[in-house]
């Protein structure tokens, strides 16, 4: 593992993970180490990518960062406050500060709720009049037609549903957005649109982005810093351009070599007969 880079200013990191470990107990004798010794810091405004294959511990890590699960050892802090092992009552601030967009919009949107109710659900039950305005604002931000609010999730395409998920995540004005494989279920042309929308929103709203993906090309397009995970550990971490240009760990090299690249494949065809 390379030495973690210092955050740009001497300010406190926004998110800090220290020696995170998560063990799942299967039986009295057997347990699975989903995460071990994971430490990193994410500075405000960073676009932090987490890359790895199935079973590498990406999703476990996301759950710990969002305080949806408790680590077996180690700690997670948000703006210097510990959020691991804290009762839900003590996490209210985090629930609006940090929001998640999941991979499968159909699985994460309630099919019986109208889109406007889905989007305003994180805002709570008070001051509903203001919420109507906020919903309209959010629909516009994710470039959905203004009348989308009255419809149901099944009336939208996969890409539009992911826009709905993003609008819902932005509703409580979070400072951090975690996107867990947000484009893996989408067609390529839709994928590019959603990535551009995410990047645009991150910049416009000054968000910190944690972007989880198995797709190195996508992470390279979106992030400025990347952590490569394997078997529950971070094997390499650094600025995105450095990791792609000079991968230090053999596993990163292997991943980069295996990633299908249109350019490389076309270049091979050019050389061919």
């Amino acid at each position: 593992m390379t030495a973690p880079s210092e955050p740009p200013a001497a300010t406190q990191p926004l998110i800090e993970a220290r020696d995170l470990e998560r063990r799942y107990t299967r039986s009295r004798r057997r347990s699975v180490h989903a995460l071990r010794g994971v430490s990193f810091e994410i500075a405000a405004g960073q676009r932090f990518g987490i890359v790895g294959e199935s079973g590498s511990g990406k999703s476990t890590l996301v759950r710990l960062l969002a305080a949806l699960d408790t680590p077996t050892a180690g700690s997670v802090s948000f703006r210097g406050n510990r959020i691991d092992g804290v009762a839900e009552r003590g996490l209210r601030f985090l629930r609006s500060e940090l929001q998640i967009v999941f991979q499968d919009p159909m699985g994460s949107l309630d099919p019986r709720m109208r889109v406007r109710d889905i989007i305003r659900e994180p805002l709570g039950r008070t001051r509903r009049a203001e919420h109507t305005e906020r919903v309209a604002e959010l629909l516009e931000a994710v470039e959905l037609p203004a009348d989308s609010g009255q419809r149901y999730p099944h009336q939208f395409s996969g890409g539009q549903r992911q826009r709905i998920s993003i609008a819902r995540a932005l509703a409580p004005r979070p400072s951090v957005l975690i996107a867990d494989e947000p484009v893996s279920a989408l067609d390529v042309s839709v994928r590019a649109q959603i990535l551009d929308l995410l990047l645009d929103l991150v910049e416009r709203l000054g968000l910190t982005l944690v972007f989880v993906s198995h797709d190195l090309n996508v992470v390279r397009y979106v992030c400025d810093e990347v952590a490569v995970m394997r078997h529950g550990e971070i094997v390499e971490r650094g600025p995105i351009d450095r990791v792609y240009a000079e991968p230090a760990h053999p596993y990163t090299q292997q991943l980069l070599a295996a990633a299908p690249s249109l350019r490389a494949a076309l270049a091979r065809l050019e050389e061919g007969p």
Partner: peptide, 12 residues
Amino acid sequence: GKLLAASDLEAR
């Protein structure tokens, strides 16, 4: 062409 442009994140 559109499909290619959308696929080729390296070029964007």
